[in-house]
């Protein structure tokens, strides 16, 4: 139980840190930010009215006599009520509404792609590490090249080749625009069809990291005594590979999930932009282009919560697969 309590406490601290960062970043801006932002907004042809100005002031904490501390507490209060402010770019839609609309797209796309890439990387890494000294070794440098390619570049090349060139996949979007979103088969089919290429991009560029980590751990694990014991026991190779070597080798990959997830999320944001995918990444960039700071911060918070949540789930899962974490002592 202690393990779970500690993890939960840690993620609460991390969440609080993200909230606090979110609060302070705009307030640390140099100059008179409200004027600058209003000027920027006007440049882009946004609605320059007192309401927009008020929204900025609230965000930046200027134009008010409240102390920083009481601003901070009312900010925290708003956050807990789910009040993320009002979007200036699509005034006066609440930020939470925009996010609620875009979030499922990203969750499904990034979730599935991350899971696939993790599974594929671990399986391939297991094989490559187990069959060292065979042709499989050459998979390692090959995936490294893929991992070193910028996400968006790979995405665009894939679009050029598979979508524009061969016409196998749609160029952009999350679904066929003639359909109306709903839970019917046609729509889901269209969404899957549109999501394949973005998912492929994410999988291709992130699989190398998992593969390499798993392969290295497999190599280390293979020389452990318990693998030798398993061999002496006369077990079948496949059983030794899975139950003895891979079962132990996968632990660091799971424990290091947090590090890799950050990269996947980063890549996904850009990938969404390339495909004009109707997810949260595209919305974040729209917000940046329109100087819609409330939306931007809301999205940052939501992404953070999602990442923290995913890590928490993985950490809890880790406790299930490594009995040693369950020791109460």
């Amino acid at each position: 139980m202690r393990y779970y309590a500690r993890k939960l406490a840690f993620y609460l601290v991390a969440f609080w840190a993200a909230l606090t960062l979110n609060f302070f970043i705009p307030r640390l801006m140099p100059g008179n930010p409200v004027d600058i932002l209003m000027a920027k907004l006007a440049q882009r042809g946004g609605t320059v009215d007192p309401a927009a100005r008020r929204a900025y002031e609230l965000l930046l904490g200027s134009g008010t006599d409240e102390s920083l501390l009481s601003q901070y507490f009312s900010y925290l209060g708003n956050m807990f009520r789910g009040d993320l402010g009002v979007s200036v770019s699509s005034f006066p839609t609440p930020v939470s509404d925009i996010i609620a609309e875009a979030l499922p797209w990203t969750l499904v796309l990034v979730g599935i792609a991350t899971f696939l890439s993790f599974a594929l990387g671990v399986v391939l890494g297991t094989l490559v590490g187990w069959r060292r000294g065979t042709w499989l070794d050459s998979l390692v440098p090959a995936t490294t090249v893929l991992a070193a390619v910028p996400y968006f570049w790979l995405a665009l090349i894939l679009v050029a080749l598979l979508a524009s060139g061969l016409g196998w996949f749609p160029l952009l979007g999350g679904y066929d625009v003639v359909l109306s979103p709903g839970w019917d088969l046609e729509f889901i089919g269209s969404a899957v069809y549109h999501g394949t290429l973005p998912a492929l991009t994410i999988v291709l560029s992130s699989v190398g990291g998992w593969l390499l980590g798993m392969r290295n751990m497999m190599v280390s694990t293979t020389s452990e005594d318990y693998v030798l014991t398993a061999q002496a026991k006369g077990l079948r190779d496949s059983r030794i590979m899975i139950r003895y070597a891979a079962r132990n080798a996968v632990l660091p990959s799971v424990a290091g999930f947090a590090i890799s997830l950050g990269f996947v999320v980063a890549g996904s944001i850009i990938t969404e932009q390339v495909f004009s995918y109707p997810g949260i990444g595209s919305k974040l960039l729209q917000a940046v282009q329109n100087n819609d700071y409330a939306l931007m911060q809301g999205i940052f918070l939501v992404i953070t919560v999602a990442v923290l949540g995913a890590n928490l789930v993985v950490d809890l899962l880790y406790a299930l697969i490594d009995p040693r974490t369950r020791v109460s002592g």
């Binding site: 999320v265 999205i299 940052f300």
Partner: peptide, 11 residues
């Protein structure tokens, strides 16, 4: 480590 880097950088 757990606060996602790129979104933060973008913000």
């Amino acid at each position: 480590l757990v606060i996602p880097g790129l979104p933060l950088v973008i913000v």
